[in-house]
């Protein structure tokens, strides 16, 4: 579903944020992307979702090149950033309606999905209020509902659990499993190693823009905890 091949991204100042990154996320995968602050996680994600261009390599979403056909790729994926800066001058429902319009979701389908997801995240009653009145967690919930509105084949999340209350975090985890069971794939970055270990069937660890370990979670951890492995590889490699 997502294939990142030899991705290299150099910022204009000369900093190499991602160097020869290779990641392969298949349908049904929940793929965790782990690394220190500034390791290159967000840069890699931003290259995938179309915020950054990149210098070398290729990115394919469902075998479609992000470089050649960005719109087709965007139509089948969804992205939630670490800090959901949404349109604060819109109400929650106006925002969701806007996103549904952009993805071409029919009126009936959007109604059903918004009802289902907003009830699950317990935010239906606040959808008529301006987003500027929302807390960080509420914005995060609306961003998640917006991302799920067109049933994406690939869901990309940057630190999705930051700001979510425990119940919403559990709901999101269930949604992630639900999506994967339906054949979608999830690629997300996180600092919370416990979550990654329990949730992900695959992980990749990035340091200084380079992937230093990747594969099935069980293979990467090899009986240790992900935290121990992470500390070991990031300090010794």
């Amino acid at each position: 579903m997502l294939k990142i091949s030899n991705l290299t991204k150099i910022y204009k100042g000369g900093k190499k944020a991602a160097s020869d990154v290779n990641i392969h996320v298949q349908a049904g995968d929940i793929y965790g992307f782990i690394g220190h602050n500034g390791a290159g996680k967000t840069t890699t994600i931003k290259c995938v979702v179309g915020i950054h261009d990149f210098d070398q390599g290729e990115i394919f979403v469902n075998e479609i090149s992000v470089k050649d056909e960005p719109l087709k790729c965007k139509e089948i994926m969804a992205y939630i950033p670490d800090n959901p800066d949404l349109y604060e001058y819109l109400t929650g429902i106006q925002y969701l309606n806007f996103i549904a319009d952009v993805y071409g979701v029919s009126a009936k389908e959007r109604e059903e999905r918004i009802r289902k997801e907003s009830d699950a995240f317990e935010i239906t009653s606040a959808l008529g209020d301006l987003i500027s009145s929302y807390s960080h967690g509420m914005k995060q919930k609306v961003a998640i509902i917006g991302a799920l509105i067109h049933k994406p084949k690939l869901l990309i999340l940057d630190e999705p659990f930051v700001g979510l209350d425990p119940k919403a975090a559990l709901t999101l985890k269930n949604k992630m499993h639900e999506l994967c069971e339906e054949g979608s794939a999830i690629f997300f970055s996180t600092h919370v190693l416990d979550v990654a270990e329990k949730l992900c069937n695959k992980v990749a660890i990035i340091r200084n823009g380079q992937i230093i370990a990747s594969g099935n979670t069980e293979d990467v951890t090899a009986g240790s905890s992900l935290e121990d492995v992470f500390m070991e590889v990031t300090e010794n490699v």
């Binding site: 549904a100 239906t124 009653s125 606040a126 959808l127 301006l130």
Partner: peptide, 18 residues
Amino acid sequence: GVSARNDYRLTTLKSQGV
């Protein structure tokens, strides 16, 4: 300060072009 009513009920939604 932004006033929040927190009393929204989902009604019929309409679709439109991009």
